[in-house]
Every structure is written in C-alpha cells, then in structure tokens.
Design a protein around this nucleic acid. Structure first.
Lengths: 205, 205
DNA sequence: GTGATTTACTGAACAGTGTTCAGTAATTTT
DNA sequence: AAAATTACTGAACACTGTTCAGTAAATCAC
C-alpha cells in the first residue's frame, strides 16, 4: 500500500522543514540563542509538534551538527583532497581546506566544536561518530607520509601537532583573537595560510 | 567619617561572596547552566540583590572570567616563567605552563575561551583587556628570540603558529577530542607535552 | 532624641525558555 | 458507518533573566 509510503515521505519532509529552519537559527543565534518556539513559529506549527520528530533540543541540535560536518566533508571533496595521491600534498590540501572552510563558515565551526554540553554521557559516542571519519582520514595520511619517509616523527605526536595547529588557528580566527594582537581579518587569513605552510615546510624531511 | 569606609568594605565583601559562589557554579555548570536564582539562594539573598552589584549575568560572568585569567597568569609566575632570561627557554616554559594549567583546569579553559555570546559588541574591548597582557608577553618573547637568532621566521606568523598549536592542543584536550582517536587521557597529556617539544625543536635555529 | 533622607534589600511580576500531556480533529482501517 | 490510528495542539509546569514598587533599617540633619 502506498499510504505508509506517502506518510513516510511526509514525515521526512517535515523533518527537513524543521532542520532547514533550525540550521539557519542555530547558525545565526547559537544553541542557547535559538528557541524551539521560534522555530515552531517559522514552520507554522505548534512547539509541541517538534517533539514528535525530535526527542529534545539536543537531539535536534545533533542533526544540525551533523549537517555542518557533512558540509565540511563535502568541502574536502570540492577541493579534490581525496584524489591527491601524494600523501604529503594531500596533507597540505587537507590543512588548507580545513582553514578555508572554517574561515568561510565560522558559525559552523562554533556549532561543531564550541558547544559541549555538561551532561549527556551517551552523546559522546554520537559525537565521536561525527568526528570519526576525519580522524581516520588524517591518521591514514600521516601514516602514509611517514611510511614514504616524507615526514618524520611519532605518528601520534604528529597527528596531535597537525590537528592542534590547524584547529588552533581556526579557534583563534573564529574567536577573533587576532584583534587582541592588533591584526586585521584579512591579515589574519593570510597569516593562517602562511603559518600552516611554515609548519609543513618544517616537518618535511 | 569611618561609615562610608565600612560601607565600602561591606560592599566589597558582598561582591566577594557573590563571586566565590558564582565562580564555583560557572566552573561546574558553565554559563547557561548557572542560574542567578541558585547563586542567590546559596548566598542567602534575594535574586534581585545581585543586580545591585552587577548589571547583569554577563557582567558577573566577566568578573569570573577575569579571575580565571588571573589564575592562569599566577600559574606562569609559579612556574617562574617571567624570571627566565633565555627567551627561548622562556618560550618553552610558557608553552608548558599553558598546557599544564589548562590540563589541570579544563573548566577554566572553557570559561575563558569557549563562551562567546553573539551580542555585546562592547564586551570585546573588555575581553581584549583580559587577553592583552598575555599577548604582549608572547610577542616580546618571540621578538627577542628572533633578535637573538634563536628561532627564525616572520614574527607575526610565528606568534600565530605558537599560539595556534598551544591553544589548539588545549582545545583538543578539553574537548576530549583525543577520545575519537582512541587515546587515553594520560596518553594525551604526554602527547601534548611531546608535541610542544617537537614543535620547539623544529623552530629552533 | 526626633523627623527626614538615604541606603539595602526584597516580593512579585513580566516575558521568555524547554518540555509534557490530555484532548481534538482528521485520516485510515475494519 | 463505526472503530482505531495518526497528527497535531493548547494549556500547563517548572524553570530562566530581569525590573520595579515598596519596605525596613541605617544614617543624617536638626
């Protein structure tokens, strides 16, 4: 029977309607600044209706976070990162793509990383799921670089450094910490790219 | 007349009472998780009373943030950083002190950096005030290192890298991102120290 | 010492939040 | 046509930050 099919489709459409509005709002106003009542108003449904599709605000937010991660991943693909055969060049491209994406979408960065709720132990496994892919891909690339003797050092330490510096640069940028150093936005963007290049040049064998 | 003196003292005591309780709560529960009503209950005053001492929640939070920064600065002093004459050794010590402090006080880290409210443009200048000292001190140290040819590269780019990697490592640690890489807490702590040492060894001339 | 004034504080209210649940109206099944 | 399921909502609960009129105490002026 096509009825259950249609119902399923309608349910999915409703989910999409909620997500679309919620995505804009979370991005614009952050987690705490976004109210379910306002989301409900914009999709022209009662607030209670959202609870028929999402357990609570956190569950909805998780789907938005997921969307951000997908955007990030797709930006890697757009930059042609996965198809780069040379692992060192792939690493370079990964770093630049990461910097570029977060400079272009600072709000996404905030949603993905700057919201750690105090509770919900179970959520961690979910968040790891979101992180997981990127982590594995970086690991593989670094390991391949070491195997081909393109960089040298401990695999874990290098990953920590690479992740640390790229993520750290993004954090500084998104927090506008460069302002405290009397640096303009455009300068900061150029600096970030150079910083990553310098770092690469130094770890290269 | 000693009355105004005493009044001033009492006012200061009240402020301290509020801050002490608020500090614990903000640290434990974060900004959004902390309610002024609960703070009021703990100091045994009405919620409205807090507004006689602080304009709003943000203003109170700012003082708490300040306290965190002071703790951080004092940890630098405890580590004897300012008295290290060799600028490269000072840089090394600064990095380790920064890592150590944030590993020991992850909640402080969250309060200091992971809370940027969407509004309050004016607050930025205040936050810069909080940041200011650390920024200048790092700059001086890096410049001195370059002058004495202990490290080489562009001053701004190096500062960005240094700040980026140390801050980035802390961010990863505090967010427990290492869990996504299947690494334990103790391992991560060791890794962070090593990562910083490796970085230093590479920028050294 | 007494009355006026300033100070310190509070109870109650306002507008907002996330969340729950009984109840309703429409749709689908029997 | 009646019964059962589904989709949805209005109203309520318990919270939040914040404001403000009102009160009681401390201080000041005489």
């Amino acid at each position: 029977m096509g009825i259950t099919e249609r119902k399923e489709r309608e349910k999915e459409e409703m989910r999409k309607k909620i997500i679309d509005v919620a995505f804009d709002m979370f991005l614009e106003e952050g987690f705490e600044g976004t109210s379910l009542r306002e989301i409900a108003k914009r999709i022209e449904y009662s607030p209670a209706t959202i609870y028929l599709y999402y357990k609570d605000k956190e569950a909805l937010f998780f789907d938005i976070q997921k969307k951000c991660f997908l955007k990030l991943i797709s930006s890697y693909k757009d930059a042609g990162v996965p198809s780069i055969k040379n692992p060192f060049e792939r690493l370079r491209a990964m770093g630049h793509a990461y910097l570029k994406f977060n400079m272009k979408n600072p709000q996404c960065f905030n949603l993905m990383f700057l919201h750690n709720s105090p509770m919900s132990e179970f959520k961690k496994t979910d968040r790891m799921e979101n992180h997981g892919n990127g982590v594995g891909f970086l690991k593989d690339t670094v390991v391949e670089c070491i195997e081909k003797k393109m960089i040298k050092g401990d695999q874990l330490e290098l990953r920590m450094e690479i992740w640390g510096i790229t993520h750290g640069l993004c954090t500084l940028y998104v927090n506008k910490s460069y302002e405290a150093a009397g640096i303009t936005k455009t300068q900061a963007e150029e600096l970030m790219k150079n910083a990553w290049e310098n770092f690469l040049a130094r770890i290269k064998t």
